[in-house]
């Protein structure tokens, strides 16, 4: 019996290791490429008639020569630093605006009973169903053609912030609902105004939820590709995602720069994601699970 159990676990371990290798391989491949100091998509130059082991060496995600030149060059010689800076500014502005809009709206939905409240919440929910491409064309015509906000930070920021609103409002409202109303009542009796209560009591109490909202807004802007590629036409205004595509899209194949850039862009979001994934998962499924 005991032997059977270890045997079964060996099989399980084999399956899990297989999948883990599959899950990790592309990650290691990008890492290897970024430290290879070369631009080609293959890690090793193969001879004309390679043997089994030479081919095996070629798929091992280990660079032929270790070098950090891709990192230094993507930073100094390419416009990547500029693109990353654009992304940072746009994402931070989106976070500030998104959190402000979501906090105020979620507070009203949570604390006040007013005509139009249910309709408003439903509208936020329905707006999540609008497909991106249906929004893309009118947004392009309105923001770029009519308002001439193409190639500007503000055009992308307002769109990103409003896209993130519904999810953030629903999540923050859920959290605000858990804060007991007694605290506010006693503050009102003490003569505090609504603004003071919101600013001094609710916001500090809701810090964890606001942190998640902020992270979500930030990631919305940081990882967005389509709108940015449509709105930002001049190379100087690319965001990091559009820039990374620029390295390997179309006819250019600067895979080394792409890999180094990808590592720089992904590192902060991967770390944040692994730290905070359980909140995001609960937020994603909260609406649908009864």
């Amino acid at each position: 019996m005991a032997d059977m159990k270890t045997n079964r676990h060996i099989l399980l371990h084999a399956v899990l290791v297989c999948f883990t290798v599959l899950a990790l391989y592309p990650v290691f491949w990008v890492l290897a490429l970024s430290f290879s100091g070369q631009q080609s998509v293959g890690l090793i130059d193969l001879p004309n008639d390679p043997s089994f082991f030479e081919r095996f060496r070629a798929i091992l995600p280990v660079p032929a020569h270790w070098s950090v030149s891709n990192f230094t060059e993507v930073w100094t010689e390419q416009s990547f630093g500029r693109w990353l800076w654009n992304s940072v500014i746009i994402s931070l502005m989106t976070t500030v605006l998104g959190v402000f809009l979501a906090c105020t709206a979620a507070y009203a939905f949570s604390r006040f009973r007013f005509p139009g409240r249910d309709t408003g919440m439903l509208m936020f929910l329905v707006s999540q169903m609008f497909p991106g491409t249906l929004m893309l064309i009118p947004l392009f015509i309105i923001i770029v053609k009519q308002l001439e906000l193409g190639n500007t930070y503000i055009g992308l920021v307002i769109v990103y912030a409003t896209t993130a609103i519904p999810f953030c409002v629903w999540m923050l409202k859920g959290y605000f609902d858990t804060i007991p109303y007694d605290i506010e009542e006693s503050a009102i009796i003490d003569g505090a105004s609504r603004l003071t209560i919101f600013w001094r009591i609710i916001l500090p109490l809701a810090k964890p939820a606001i942190a998640i909202t902020a992270l979500f807004s930030f990631m919305t802007a940081w990882n967005e590709f389509i709108l940015a590629s449509v709105f930002m036409e001049s190379e100087a205004n690319y965001t990091a995602p559009v820039g990374l595509r620029f390295f390997v899209g179309g006819f250019s194949s600067q895979w080394g720069y792409f890999a180094a850039g990808s590592v720089i862009v992904s590192l902060p979001v991967v770390v944040l994601f692994l730290q905070l994934q359980k909140y995001l998962i609960s937020g994603l499924t909260a609406g649908s699970v009864k």
């Binding site: 899950a23 491949w29 990008v30 990374l244 792409f258 992904s266 979001v269 991967v270 692994l274």
Partner: peptide, 16 residues
Amino acid sequence: LLILPWAIPNYITALV
């Protein structure tokens, strides 16, 4: 380790 693919921005995954 198995959750890692979810954490990486999907446009990067696609290009990789």
